[in-house]
């Protein structure tokens, strides 16, 4: 029996690990889509159940939501810019673009919370009707994802400042950018189905 030993090729292993992780994270995003699909189907079924309360047509201020949408879309773009900078291994630029993305994300979240706050102040909280429960839950779940995205972004920036653009930081950046773009994709449908359809009373 011949016994030969070989040693590990760490680079190859790392590249394979990155491929695995990216794909695994992608599958997670797909499952998250199904989660949102569940919330969308609840919204679709309950959105007419206003129980004497206001409907989407009465509540939504479209220009405000348009600004929100544009802010999130821009943040998705700046996140892409950060990835381009990462590809050039330009840490300062990555940090700068991520900083812009973070601020835009925070703006979006602030706008959403203020919208929620005003509705609750007007007596239209999630307790008001089936429609409002499903509205707050659907949009709020997206907001919760944004919150986690922001936290993740901040942590990644700290890692990057401490460790530099290491292979593992780059991997995390790739996943983070996927997550952030994904949240914008979900927002397309929230914008269309909840806000645009809603304000036309569909």
């Amino acid at each position: 029996m011949s016994e030969v030993t070989t040693t590990l090729n760490m680079h190859q292993i790392e590249a394979r690990a990155t491929e695995k992780t990216t794909f695994g994270f992608w599958v997670y995003l797909m499952t998250d889509c199904v989660l949102f699909a569940g919330l969308f189907s609840v919204y679709a079924v309950l959105h007419g159940n206003t129980f004497g309360g206001p409907s989407g047509h009465d509540l939504f201020k479209l220009p405000y939501v348009l600004v929100e949408t544009m802010v999130l879309l821009t943040s998705s773009f700046t996140c892409g810019m950060a990835m381009l900078a990462a590809q050039r291994r330009d840490r300062t630029q990555v940090l700068a673009w991520l900083g812009v993305t973070f601020l835009l994300g925070l703006t979006f979240l602030g706008m959403e919370l203020s919208e929620f706050h005003n509705m609750v102040l007007d007596g239209n909280s999630w307790r008001r009707s089936g429609f409002l429960s499903s509205y707050f839950t659907l949009v709020g779940t997206h907001g919760l994802h944004i919150t986690f995205g922001l936290l993740w972004m901040a942590v990644t920036c700290v890692f990057m400042i401490k460790k530099g653009l290491t292979e593992s930081v780059l991997k995390r950046l790739t996943l983070l950018s996927l997550f952030w773009h994904f949240l914008d994709v979900i927002w397309i449908f929230i914008f269309t189905i909840v806000y645009l359809f809603g304000s036309r009373g569909i």
Binding site: L46, F51, R127, G130, F131, S133
Partner: peptide, 8 residues
Amino acid sequence: HFFTAGSG
């Protein structure tokens, strides 16, 4: 009020 009897 997702699954309650009243309130939509």
